[in-house]
Design a protein around this nucleic acid. Structure first.
Lengths: 226, 226
DNA sequence: CGCTGGGTTGAGGCGAGTCAACGGAAGTGG
DNA sequence: CCACTTCCGTTGACTCGCCTCAACCCAGCG
């Protein structure tokens, strides 16, 4: 872990993100006051379940995995945050205790905001509060989606659903590149890596081709039926 | 479904609830303006996945099940709200489209607040915004808990965890009454009713006795080890 | 008395986790 | 340039947990 300066491209990521995009520049500046920047290698731990945290985190580049710990070192991902996402806001309003661990799933640059300051701003500026509210709604829906998929879909169906969520609507055949290692995808979908692999095999017969991180879909309909 | 008047005991539930307790009476009154009250029988549907909703719901008595639909009529609970809980606030900030269905899991009295009014109030009054934020954080944590338990724990472990969450800390042996039908508990824990039943059987050998809705625990430690 | 509905028990099957072996791609060092 | 390792991913064999379906139990009630 290394401390850095906020570059202009970092700033571009920030102001384009769902959370900051809606706020005026002056407010963004106020939030950024006292923020610190750090770079992390894969597997660097940002915080641990049970820690007391005074920061809110923002992914400027890379990928962060949020997970809970179970018996005998088992881990269950509860969210995965790509570039442009903010997390650990919960702690800010829930006694600063964090209920999950976070680690970089690949080399990442992380911005750490002062949560006390952000909270003050939210109390003073309804626009900030509004932004936080929508952010929380969005996050809540994501988690709910995961929960529902876990409970309703089989492994191949979950993978199909993931693929479809990356499909530009209207196209019948398309392709895209996985934004991260299959390992991470497996975690996000609540699967063992082997199960993800087998799910891809199963989907092959529905017109899905996988080469490295490239996914190619021949027939969208076939996937939806799955 | 039948329309009713807000009784004084209803009001007591309201002002004692996590959400309203923190707000001054005048604010509560403002939120309640234009609210409507209705009573529902078990299995009454309050709204359906995909509906467009202009209300926020509050359970005055009874129990509401929030669930997503899967193929072939399958249902997966994503939350269960007892008396004193508010739900469907997500829709208010996410285009008023609701991503799950809700139905009364037993005879219930439901208060319907005007979501537009609540949103205006949140924009104008930081205290309201704050209350909503904390409410969302709390809900987010609940869902995350469910997801993590689904992924980390077996059926008996989930049941043990549920029982322990109802244990006054410090006591080694205790008992309590299930707040709802086993059917509903099974849904909340993401289990088939039969699986719940078997889980209770398994826990018997760890000192858990079940008679109707009464649960009796002889040895707390044994449960935690499970 | 028989009915109904919630809950339990049993038998069978399927989905996914686990462990182990293997494949190939990229990186390392001679 | 080629052997060697390492790491990610795949495949196979096996196990286990939970779902499904069906039968049954029992309490409440007409």
């Amino acid at each position: 872990m290394k401390t850095l300066q906020l570059t202009s491209s970092d700033r571009a990521i920030l102001v384009r993100s769902r959370f900051f995009a809606r706020l005026p520049h002056s407010t963004v500046d106020a939030i950024l006051e006292g923020a610190t920047l750090s770079s992390h290698e894969e597997h660097d731990v940002l915080f641990r379940q049970g820690d007391s945290i005074d920061d809110v985190f923002f992914v400027l580049s890379g990928l962060v995995r949020l997970y809970r710990l179970g018996k005998e070192g088992r881990e269950a991902d509860v969210a995965v945050f790509p570039k442009g996402e903010m997390f650990a806001e919960n702690a800010m309003f829930l006694g600063h205790r964090v209920t999950a661990s976070a680690e970089a799933a690949e080399a990442s640059i992380i911005l750490r905001l002062d949560s006390r300051k952000l909270r003050q701003l939210a109390a003073a500026d309804p626009e900030v509060a509004q932004a936080i509210i929508e952010h929380l709604c969005h996050r809540g829906k994501m988690t709910e989606d995961l929960l529902a998929e876990d409970r309703l879909l089989t492994a191949p169906q979950r993978v199909a659903s993931y693929i479809l969520s990356h499909c530009p609507n209207g196209s019948t055949s398309f392709s895209f590149r996985l934004p991260f290692q299959k390992n991470v995808l497996a975690g996000k979908l609540g699967l063992a890596p082997e199960a993800l692999s087998r799910a891809f095999s199963t989907l092959r017969q529905s017109g899905v081709t996988v080469k490295g991180r490239m996914i190619e879909i021949r027939d969208r309909q076939a996937l939806e039926r799955f």
